[in-house]
Computed example of a mutant assay.
Amino acid sequence: MEDRAGVGTAASGAEGPAPRRRRGASMADVARLAGVSSQTVSRVSNGSPGVIEETRTRVLAAMRELGYRPNSAARALKHGEFRTLGVILFNLSTTGNVRTLEAIADSAAREGYAITLMPVAVPTQTDVRGAFTRLGELAVDGIIVIMEVHLLDTSTISLPPHVQVVVVDSDAGDRYTVVDTDQRGGARAAVDHLLELGHRTVWHLAGPPDSFAAQRRTEAWLAALREAGRTVPPLLFGDWSAESGYKAGKLVPDDCTAVFAANDQMALGLLRALHERGRRVPQDISVVGFDDIPESASFIPPLTTVHQDFAEVGRRCVDGVLGQIRNQSAGPGTALVPTRLVRRSSTAPAPSAG
Rank of each mutant, 00 (worst) to 15 (best):
M1L: 11
A11S: 03
S12I: 03
A18Q: 12
R20Y: 00
S42M: 02
S42W: 03
P49R: 12
P49L: 04
I52W: 03
E53I: 04
T55P: 00
R56K: 13
R58M: 02
A61N: 09
Y68M: 09
P70Y: 03
L77F: 07
L77V: 12
E81N: 10
R83G: 02
V87G: 06
F90T: 13
G96Q: 03
E102N: 10
A103W: 00
D106P: 00
I115H: 01
L117I: 13
M118E: 13
V122R: 14
Q125K: 07
A131W: 02
T133R: 14
L138R: 15
A139N: 12
G142T: 08
L152V: 01
T154F: 08
P160T: 14
H162R: 15
V168Q: 12
A172E: 07
T177E: 05
D180R: 14
R184P: 00
V191W: 02
L195I: 03
P209R: 15
S211I: 08
A220T: 07
A220I: 06
A228W: 04
L235R: 13
G238V: 05
W240D: 01
E243I: 00
S244A: 13
V252I: 15
C256E: 05
F260H: 10
A261V: 07
D264S: 07
M266H: 09
L271T: 12
R272I: 06
R280V: 10
P282Y: 08
Q283R: 14
G289V: 12
E295W: 13
P301S: 11
L303D: 10
T304C: 10
T304E: 11
H307P: 04
V313N: 10
I325T: 10
A330S: 14
T334P: 06
R343E: 14
A350Q: 09
